[in-house]
């Protein structure tokens, strides 16, 4: 695991030095500031509005970060041939994948925590209350971001980055749908659609912006189950990505 740890740090340092991270982070923070600038009817409603759309903004930010950080990692490694000396000698393919994933996941998590802090500052600036579940909600979004990151890695092993963006975004949207909504896309083949939906994640598990915005209490055990679900699904997605990667010839 030391090799994975070192390679994760290497990935983290590399991504930290790229402009992509800072660009996306700036866009999210500007969007959050923009949400707070929208005039609202009263103080209590503005609080809901800022929290609801703020958390939604952070969630979209998780998607942007996943794509911006990871969509080009493997294709670029192949194109520039930096992959060869890594895979040929010190690293196995699973170590390469995990190293890249953990590096990107750490930096994505740090960036999302910064956006959460940004949202808190905006709430404070507008003298709005900060709900206690805001940080746990951000943690759930971070886990959702890791699931998206694993999806980006999966697609990156057999598609180009321009195709990775719409595919991951499509999966992100589809995974929000209930089973009946999903079957409704192709009602003539309900069995097939049900089977496909079975393997797709249920991203609604990570959505707690509504209850937080409306002041509902969420049981701590739910956070634990949702985080466990997200981590397990990410592991599944990474294993499928690894299966694809292991089957590939590195010409």
């Amino acid at each position: 695991m030391k090799a994975v740890f070192t390679f994760s740090l290497m990935t983290l340092r590399m991504l930290f030095r790229k402009r992509t991270l800072w660009g996306i982070l700036l866009v999210i923070l500007l969007a959050l500031a923009g949400i707070a600038a929208v005039p609202s009817f009263d103080v209590s409603n503005q609080g809901r509005f800022v929290l609801d759309f703020g958390l939604f903004g952070i969630e979209v930010g998780a998607l942007l970060l996943a794509l911006g950080l990871a969509a080009n990692l493997y294709p670029r490694d192949r194109e520039t041939r930096t992959l060869m000396p890594l895979i040929a000698v010190p690293l196995s393919r699973w170590q390469y994948l995990l190293g890249r994933f953990f590096g990107a996941a750490l930096i994505q998590a740090a960036a999302l925590l910064v956006t959460c802090l940004g949202l808190m500052l905006i709430l404070l600036f507008h003298k709005l209350p900060i709900p206690g579940d805001l940080l746990p909600a951000t943690l759930l979004i971070i886990v959702e971001g890791w699931f998206l990151l694993s999806t980006v890695f999966f697609f990156s092993f057999f598609t180009s980055p321009p195709l990775n963006w719409p595919l991951t975004t499509m999966l992100f949207i589809v995974s929000q749908m209930s089973v009946s909504e999903f079957v409704g896309i192709l009602p003539s083949a309900p069995g097939l659609m049900r089977a496909v939906r079975m393997l797709l994640p249920h991203a609604d598990v990570f959505h707690i912006k509504d209850p937080i915005a409306h002041g509902f209490e969420i049981e701590p055990v739910y956070f634990l189950i949702a985080i466990f679900y997200g981590l397990c699904y990410s592991a599944f997605m990474l294993s499928v990505a690894l299966a694809v990667f292991r089957g590939r010839d590195l010409k």
């Binding site: 740090l9 930096t82 010190p90």
Partner: peptide
């Protein structure tokens, strides 16, 4: 490898240290 390339954002010392750790 033929026509080797490395990540541009690192120095040789950083690269050697990281490869040593991975190995």
């Amino acid at each position: 490898p033929e026509n080797p390339d490395y990540d541009d954002s690192f120095t040789p010392m950083e690269y050697l240290s990281m490869f040593a750790s991975m190995r």
